[in-house]
Design a protein around this nucleic acid. Structure first.
Length: 489
RNA sequence: GGUACCGUGGCCGAGUGGCUAGGCUCUGGUCUGCAAAACCAGCUACAGCGGUUCGAAUCCGCUCGGUACCUCCA
C-alpha cells in the first residue's frame, strides 16, 4: 500500500515504516515541560510537533493513548555541587510561595497557552509528584537487577556495569570509553563511582523542600526516573513512540533507555522522535541562554525583539512551514510572512463557497489528495503539505477569476480535502475575526459619519435608508442637537 | 577535546543523482473611479575547491563558516 506512514527514528537514524506494536492501538509518550516558568517558543514547537503526530495518527484511525507529563518535582538547577537548588523550590522561595503553588500556577498557564495554539490535550497528563510510589518501585527493580548502587541515602545508576551487558549510548552515539576520557572535574560527585552515573533517587539536603520518604532516604527521584515510571505505568513496558526535544536526547533519553533495559531487560520504545530547536540569530532559544521569548509575549507583542503582537495561529503556521527536524530561526519578517501566507490560504478556502461551478473541470485537483498525504506520510512533512495547499489556493483563485473551471463535485472535493488538512490534521483555526466589541463601536462611528455627511449634503434618502436598515438590526438612531447617538432596542 | 548536524535565490524554507517546491518581498502588466485582493509575467539559488558519474544542490574527499549535545533545558 502506498499510504504508509514513515517516521524518522532517532535510534536508527533512518526513516522507518510505522507499524504499531498492537494495532489499532498506539502508545505515545512525550516529555512535557518543567513548570517553573512561562512556556516559550521552544515549548510550543515540541507541543505542536507532537500534536501533529497525534492528530495524524487519529486521522489514520488509530486509537492513540497520548501521554505527556508535567515535571513538577524540582530537579537541581546545578547538578554539580551541593549548593545546587531545586528550580521549583528556588522560584517558590523567591516568590514566597509553596512549591506546589508555583507548579499549579505555571501548569495552568501552560494549558492556556496550548489551548490558544490549538494543541489538543493529551489523553493522560501525569505529574512526577503524583507518581513517587511508582518511581520508587522502578528504582527497586533496577537495584534488584544489580544495575544500581546506594550511597549515603542516594541511589545511582551504574553505567559501566550496565554497558557491559547492554549498550549505553546507542541513542546519542556516545561511547562510555569516550565519556570516561572526558571526565570533567566536577564537585559534589564523590558519591558516584563515575561522573556519568546518574541519580535514580537523591537524598534531600536539609534545605530541600520537595521531599518524599523512600527506603533509602527522604529525598526525591532522579530526573530520568519519572518518564520511565510513568510511561510504563500508562503505556506498558513496550510502546510505540517516545518524543521530546532534541536537547533531551542526552542524557535524558539515553538514560531512560538504560533504565528500562536495566529494569525490564529490553527497550521500552520502538520509535524515538525528536523535534529540533528554535533559534534566535542562529542560536538556540533556551532558558539557560536567557534569549527566550514567551508565548504570552508573542501574543501581546511586549518584548523588545518583537515589532508587534502575533496571533497564536501565526506561531503555529510559522512552525508548520518548517520540518520538525530542522532548526527554525525566529525573526519578525518570517513571522509576518507566515501570517500573510496563512491568511491567503484561509481566504481561498472561504472563497470555495462562493465559487462559480462549471460542467467540467479544466484542471486536476484530485491529485492533491495523494500528494498531501504522501507528504504527511513522509515523516510528517508539513511544509510540503502547505506547498500543495498553496497550489490549491491558486487554483481556487484562478477559478474565481475565471481562468480555470471546476465542477461542483471537484469544488466539494477541494473543500473537504482542505478542511481536513488545515483544520483537523494541521490543527489550524481561522480566528482572525476580532472578538472585541470595540469593532461594533468603530463600525457604528463610520456609518454615522457617512450618514452625517449625507445629511449635510441634503441627501436625506441615503440618511433615511441607513436609519431604516439599522432599525432592522435592532439598532435605533437618535438624532439630537449634539449629534447622533444609537442604542440597541 | 568527544559526538552529531547544518551551510539553498533579497528573507524564510522544502528537496538527496536528471523532471530546476512553496510562502514572503521586489519589478512589470491585467483588472479597478482610487486602493486592496486576485490573476499573468519576471528575478532561476544551492559556502569554496577537487573527485565519482553520461549527468550532482543531492554521493565521496578536503577547506572555510555555523549550530547542538557532552550541566538543567522543548
Amino acid at each position: 500500500m502506498e499510504n504508509q506512514l514513515q517516521i524518522y527514528n532517532t535510534l536508527t537514524r533512518r526513516k522507518e515504516i510505522f507499524e504499531p506494536i498492537k494495532p489499532p492501538h498506539v502508545g505515545m509518550y512525550v516529555c512535557g515541560p518543567t513548570v517553573y516558568g512561562d512556556a516559550h517558543l521552544g515549548h510550543a514547537r515540541a507541543a505542536i510537533t507532537f500534536d501533529i503526530v497525534f492528530r495524524y495518527l487519529l486521522h489514520l484511525g488509530y486509537k492513540v493513548r497520548y501521554v505527556r507529563n508535567i515535571t513538577d518535582v524540582g530537579h537541581l538547577e546545578n547538578d554539580t555541587d551541593e549548593l545546587g537548588e531545586d528550580k521549583i523550590a528556588k522560584k517558590a522561595r523567591l516568590e514566597e510561595l509553596e512549591p506546589m503553588e508555583v507548579v499549579q500556577y505555571f501548569a495552568n498557564r501552560y494549558h492556556k497557552d496550548m489551548e490558544r495554539l490549538n494543541v489538543l490535550p493529551p489523553s493522560i497528563e501525569p505529574t512526577a509528584s503524583g507518581h513517587i510510589i511508582e518511581q520508587i518501585a522502578y528504582v527497586k527493580e533496577i537495584l534488584e537487577k544489580g544495575y544500581g548502587y546506594e550511597k549515603d541515602g542516594s541511589v545511582y545508576f551504574d553505567v559501566v556495569k550496565y554497558n557491559k551487558d547492554y549498550n549505553y549510548g546507542k541513542l546519542s552515539g556516545r561511547k562510555v570509553e569516550d565519556l570516561l576520557e572526558n571526565t570533567r572535574e566536577l564537585a559534589g560527585q564523590e558519591d558516584k563511582k563515575n561522573s556519568f552515573d546518574f541519580a535514580l533517587w537523591k537524598k534531600a539536603d536539609p534545605k530541600h523542600i520537595m521531599r518524599w520518604p523512600s527506603p533509602w532516604s527522604e529525598g526525591y527521584p532522579g530526573w530520568h526516573m519519572e518518564c520511565s515510571a510513568m510511561s510504563s505505568k500508562y503505556l506498558g513496558d513496550q510502546f510505540d513512540i517516545h518524543g521530546g526535544g532534541l536537547d533531551l536526547l542526552f542524557p535524558h533519553h539515553e538514560s531512560e533507555i538504560a533504565q528500562s533495559n536495566a529494569a525490564k531487560g529490553h527497550d521500552a520504545v520502538k520509535y524515538w522522535m525528536h523535534n529540533n530547536m528554535i533559534t534566535v540569530d542562529g542560536q538556540k532559544m533556551g532558558k539557560s541562554l536567557n534569549n527566550f521569548i514567551t508565548l504570552n509575549e508573542f501574543f501581546s507583542g511586549e518584548h523588545k525583539a518583537l515589532d508587534r503582537p502575533y496571533a497564536p495561529m501565526t506561531i503555529r503556521f510559522f512552525m508548520l512551514q518548517a520540518h520538525y527536524r530542522s532548526t527554525l530561526d525566529f525573526s519578525n519578517d518570517a513571522l509576518k510572512a507566515a501570517e500573510k501566507g496563512m491568511n491567503k490560504l484561509f481566504e481561498s478556502y472561504n472563497l470555495l463557497d462562493k465559487l462559480k461551478v462549471s460542467g467540467t473541470s479544466s484542471t486536476d485537483v484530485r491529485k492533491y489528495e495523494q500528494l498531501c498525504f504522501d507528504a504527511l506520510n513522509d515523516d510528517f512533512n508539513t511544509p510540503i503539505v502547505l506547498a500543495h495547499l498553496f497550489d490549491l489556493s491558486k487554483v481556487i483563485n484562478q477559478v474565481n477569476s475565471e481562468k480555470e473551471t471546476l465542477t461542483k463535485e471537484d469544488v466539494d472535493f477541494v473543500k473537504n480535502l482542505m478542511g481536513t488538512l488545515l483544520f483537523n490534521i494541521l490543527g489550524l483555526r481561522d480566528d482572525r475575526e476580532k472578538d472585541d466589541s470595540q469593532l461594533v463601536e468603530y463600525l457604528m462611528k463610520t456609518i454615522l459619519d457617512i450618514r452625517q455627511q449625507a445629511k449635510e449634503n441634503k441627501d436625506y434618502a441615503t440618511a433615511d435608508k441607513i436609519r431604516e436598515e439599522l432599525e432592522k438590526l435592532n439598532i435605533r438612531l437618535k438624532d439630537s442637537k449634539e449629534g447622533t447617538g444609537w442604542t440597541f432596542i
